[in-house]
Write a protein that binds this DNA or RNA. Structure first.
Length: 305
DNA sequence: CCCCTCACCTGATCGC
DNA sequence: TGCGATCAGGTGAGGG
């Protein structure tokens, strides 16, 4: 479920279930899913066991579950006025094929790589299965650091280089447009660069470019400010609409924490629509190889200018 | 510093 | 039924 809407659907599903839950036990079924964790599996397991999750956060396609500091775990049970801020988090990236599934303690899922048994003071026992066919995704324990911008928001160190996503209330539109104009590359490359703007992947890049009538290889330097502004608006619109529809699922591979698919695949105008008529002009949508992946667009509506 | 290519991986599905 | 080819929604290291 890897782009912003799909990750947000997972984050939103996790938040109420895991906040306040304690990690009772951990099973590493495939250590390659810890590729982003510095240190051996035992280090991951030792540090995570007994920890309590304080919430569920996200930036772009990364999400993380901050850990209640050990010294103040007690205060969750009997809240006190001042609780120290978390300094560590369980970072989850879904890669190309990752899923996070919440199950009862007896349910297993095919291709589960990491399993957490959780116990929640009011929701009872819960199993969290991290499933990932290709193992491009990962779980990792990481420390939280303040972002370099003025807001000093805390994010995991491995997320520090990721730009704010366009649904973030603190996304700086003027800064984005300025940095975009300074780039000397094609617009789709820029949209997919998570250090410039995060959360956009191949599907939503193609959809937003189609909506804004911009060719994927349009040079960023020649993209006028009004067209760039329009593109950003279309990016936001498509992400919001996809989120409202539960994300894009082509098959059972992309599902929410309960294993259910989203419906946005029915709303796609360009991605995967090669051979079908462009919903705007009726000419065929084409697919071209670009950056080792497919780019779907309408040759008539989307021309380099 | 910026830009771009490539390696990293598996298993579901399809055609022969 | 079996086997090989094909395909996929992401990321970052490293070279130019």
């Amino acid at each position: 479920m890897p782009e912003l809407p799909e990750v947000e659907v997972v984050r939103a599903g996790l938040e109420p279930a895991v906040t306040g839950a304690r990690v009772a036990s951990i099973e590493i079924l495939d250590a390659r899913s810890l590729r982003r964790h510095t240190g051996p599996s035992e280090d991951f397991t030792d540090r995570l066991e007994g920890a309590i999750f304080a919430g569920a956060s996200r930036r772009g396609k990364y999400m993380w579950l901050p850990l209640v500091p050990r010294a103040s775990q007690h205060s969750l049970i009997e809240p006190v006025e001042i609780t120290p801020a978390p300094t560590e988090a369980l970072v989850v990236h879904l890669g190309m094929s990752g899923q996070v599934l919440l199950r009862d303690r007896y349910t297993d899922d095919n291709l589960t790589r990491i399993r957490l048994e959780l116990s929640h003071p009011s929701h009872g026992d819960l199993r969290l299965n991290f499933v990932d066919q290709r193992i491009f995704g990962s779980m990792a324990l990481d420390s939280l650091v303040a972002t370099p911008d003025v807001l000093r928001e805390h994010v995991p160190t491995q997320v520090a280089h990721i730009a704010r996503d366009p649904l973030d209330p603190h996304f700086d539109e003027a800064l984005f447009l300025k940095r975009l104009a300074a780039r000397n590359t094609g617009i789709k490359r820029a949209l997919l660069d998570q250090s410039l703007i995060s959360g956009i992947g191949n599907i939503y890049a193609d959809e937003a470019l189609w909506a804004a009538r911009i060719h994927y290889d349009q040079p960023t330097g020649a993209l006028t400010r009004p067209r760039a502004t329009r593109l950003l608006a279309e990016v936001r619109a498509v992400l919001i609409k996809a989120l409202a529809e539960g994300g894009t699922s082509f098959d059972a591979q992309y599902v929410n924490v309960n294993g259910n698919s989203g419906y946005f695949s029915h709303s796609l105008n360009a991605y995967g629509q090669q051979g079908k008529p462009c919903p705007r002009c009726g000419r065929p949508i084409v697919r071209e190889q670009f950056m080792n992946r497919g780019s779907h667009f309408c040759r008539f509506c989307q021309k380099i200018r």
